[in-house]
């Protein structure tokens, strides 16, 4: 008797592909539509997990662009504290598709919203990248001037890039009710003040994420028609939810929306690919060992499993080194910069 499952490869069956396979050595988990190679000029952005992606690509010898590098003799730790060298420009973590879209819109029009400069004491934070200056800017003028500089670098970045790797992190965000501008952190957490009359909670649904991704792609292709996108979903759960749901339910819903949208968007476009970081790290075969004891942060082993699979799929791991993916020697996993964790720190 013949049926459609009879001739499927081992990767199609849970028992052989998952239950019976070491979670750090999944085979056939990714089949890129297009490959990264030595000629690729890669831009990276996204939620906290995206920091691991950028590091792994750099460690593998790929050309990860840095459009906004620190001063040449800046001590590495100072550079890192000030948000340099973490992503391809100094935008900090970009958690939601809406945040990415608005950043690109701002970059295209060189738009700086003065309402997005938040005070904290006598210092001023760029609300759209609140932790890139640990102590804030000296004045609103300085924050605005450096934002213009940043936006200019972004235009240059996406004109130069051949590939853009974006890690989708959250669907929940806080927005200015009037302007619709979303923030990476809830007002009042890093700086500014929360005003219930002005700030509104948003939880992006699948259609909104899809619409954002479409608009992002349109903007990027307008700037650089040959740019290709690689989407992945952060396996890091929500630190906290403002949805009213249990955080486990909220986190699962958020990741499900992002995963479904990223997959569908990649299927719809030849120039967009999806890589399953989320699946690799949350694989039940790992028995939870890809998560730290707080069940939120991804362990070095988990990061390596995901990134090894990514690099192998692109034929990069073999070319660069047969050794497991190495993280930056100067940076351990605890160094990942994640504003979201502040929600936990400031919990009453």
């Amino acid at each position: 008797m013949s049926h459609p499952y009879a001739d499927l490869p081992a990767t199609a069956f849970w028992r052989s592909a998952v239950a019976g396979t070491a979670p750090e050595a999944l085979e056939g988990i990714a089949a890129p539509k297009f490959r990264l190679d030595g000629q690729s000029a890669i831009a990276t952005a996204g939620s906290c997990f995206a920091q691991h992606v950028g590091r792994a690509l750099r460690a593998a010898g790929l050309n990860v662009l840095d459009a906004e590098p620190a001063p040449p003799k800046c001590p590495p730790q100072v550079a890192r504290d000030y948000g340099y060298g973490i992503y391809s420009a100094r935008y900090g973590n970009i958690y939601s598709t809406r945040q990415l879209l608005q950043l690109l819109q701002d970059a295209m029009g060189d738009v700086v919203d003065p309402a997005a400069i938040w005070p904290r004491g006598r210092r001023f934070h760029d609300a759209l990248r609140p932790t890139i200056e640990p102590d804030g800017f000296a004045s609103p003028q300085e924050a605005v001037a450096l934002r213009h500089t940043h936006l200019g670098k972004l235009r240059d970045l996406f004109q130069r890039a051949t590939h853009f790797v974006f890690t989708l992190g959250l669907t929940e965000c806080w927005a200015d009710r009037e302007s619709g501008r979303v923030y990476p952190t809830c007002p009042g957490v890093v700086a500014g003040a929360f005003d219930p009359a002005r700030h509104v909670f948003m939880n992006l649904g699948w259609p909104e994420v899809m619409a954002d991704l479409t608009a992002v792609r349109d903007l990027l292709r307008g700037l650089n028609p040959d740019l290709r996108m690689i989407l992945t979903v952060s396996p890091v759960p929500l630190t906290a939810t403002a949805s009213g749901q249990h955080v486990l339910q909220a986190s699962t819903a958020s990741k499900a929306i992002l995963r479904a949208a990223a997959g569908a968007f990649a299927e719809a476009h030849e120039d967009v690919d999806y890589f399953p970081s989320y699946e690799i790290v949350t694989n039940p075969a790992a028995g939870g060992r890809f998560f730290a004891p707080n069940l939120r942060e991804v362990t070095a082993e988990g990061v390596a499993a995901a990134m090894q699979a990514f690099l192998a799929a692109h034929g990069v791991a073999e070319r660069a080194s047969s050794a497991p993916v190495a993280l930056d020697e100067d940076v351990d996993l605890g160094d990942v910069i994640c504003e979201e964790i502040l929600l936990e720190a400031f919990r009453k």
């Binding site: 001063p71 003799k73 800046c74 001590p75 730790q77 100072v78 504290d81 000030y82 200056e133 640990p134 102590d135 804030g136 800017f137 000296a138 300085e142 001037a145 450096l146 500089t149």
Partner: peptide
């Protein structure tokens, strides 16, 4: 252009 705080931090270090 960089921030005054970055310059201060580099000097301090």
């Amino acid at each position: 252009l960089v921030s005054t705080a970055l310059i201060e931090a580099m000097i301090r270090q």
